[in-house]
Design a protein around this nucleic acid. Structure first.
Lengths: 196, 196
DNA sequence: GCGCTACTATGACCACTGTCATAGTCGGCT
DNA sequence: AGCCGACTATGACAGTGGTCATAGTAGCGC
């Protein structure tokens, strides 16, 4: 996931996202980001003249694009594409990560929203945009599975909301139970939307 | 909601929860809490010898008890108690708050989880306990409405997860759309669990 | 060689954090 | 009155945050 062979700028954005996932926006320092990215500290002000706000916003945007791109990958991995299968795959990414890596990390977009929604408006907008770039391909995938166009966007919102909440609870409990539970409970509803 | 007539200790716990709701745990300072509670700064170390960690944990526990107690209130407010109606009432608390107060505040338990799940284990446990004290009366309410005992807990987890995620998205978008959407989409599933 | 740009390297600044130490005040008990 | 516990009031400490200023280096066109 890391791919060390990228420019220092990209590495810093990536590291910022990774550190925000852990402890939130306020708890991640600029110096810490540079160190984690093995990038010179002086490059921070050079690549991100807008300061921390710019760096955080780019990290959030990056996370949104990443989540959006994953939807396509999940679709390819499903032999029999169904809404519930897609949702299960989305959740499985987290259960897998938690299974072998501990429960240290959450969703960076959620962290940015919690920490910046009331203070930094640009970051809040970045988070909203990230959710949108995640939701769009998801709704498109649902339509491709036979979900009526009018239900695709609402169901995508439901899926993302439920997943985000389950991630929260799973981290708090240090147990994947919430993730597996919502997959099991929400699956039938999602599949029932096909051809209806 | 404030009720200024309480001891300074309770006021500080309450203020801590309120400030954590806004900007997260790391961004809320002890001095800020004392000032917000109109309590003397010297009382912090007197009432909370465990420092910030203790204060935050108590704020999270308080939030959990508050959410749990609200379930009963919502039930009383429903003339025809149904799972979907209860879920709608839970979400309405947030849409009401966002309608006339802006989107400044989120759930303190979510904020504590995001900020402390990987660093402060005691706070993480407090968050898990808060979710539990919220989930228990909710599951009990569902059973009271005719939901089979085996489905009550999973459905309660689903409801809380979905609500938490919708709160997140609503704050990011500065729009109650996610909240109203998940209420509309999840309602039928919840009601279908009655007598089945 | 010069000059220019891209990038790196440090050190300093001020604001602020959580925590501790110390002194002060108040009320009630005996 | 004296005393003692609960609580309040402040100041100081060491650490860290983001940001700025300044100087240095590498590479390239000329």
């Amino acid at each position: 996931m890391t791919e060390a062979r990228r420019g220092p700028r990209e590495r810093m954005v990536f590291s910022a996202a990774q550190l925000i996932r852990r402890g939130g926006v306020t708890a991640t320092g600029m110096r810490e980001v540079a160190e984690h990215a093995q990038a010179p500290r002086g490059s921070l002000q050079h690549y991100f003249p807008g300061g921390k706000e710019q760096l955080v916003n780019e990290a959030v945007e990056w996370a949104g694009r990443y989540a959006g791109r994953r939807i396509g990958r999940f679709l390819e991995g499903l032999e029999q594409p169904t809404p519930s299968g897609l949702f299960a795959a989305m959740a499985a990414q987290w259960t897998d990560e938690y299974a072998d890596g501990g429960f240290a990390t959450g969703c960076p977009v959620a962290a940015a929203t919690v920490d910046c929604a009331s203070t930094g408006d640009s970051t809040r907008q970045a988070a909203a945009a990230a959710f949108a770039t995640w939701r769009a391909p998801l709704a498109e995938a649902l339509r491709g599975m036979g979900v009526p166009a009018a239900r695709a966007e609402p169901l995508a919102t439901l899926m993302i909301s439920t997943l985000e909440g389950a991630i929260l609870m799973a981290r708090a409990e240090r147990d994947v139970r919430p993730l597996t539970t919502v997959v099991r409970e929400l699956g039938p509803l999602l599949d029932a939307a096909v051809h209806s």
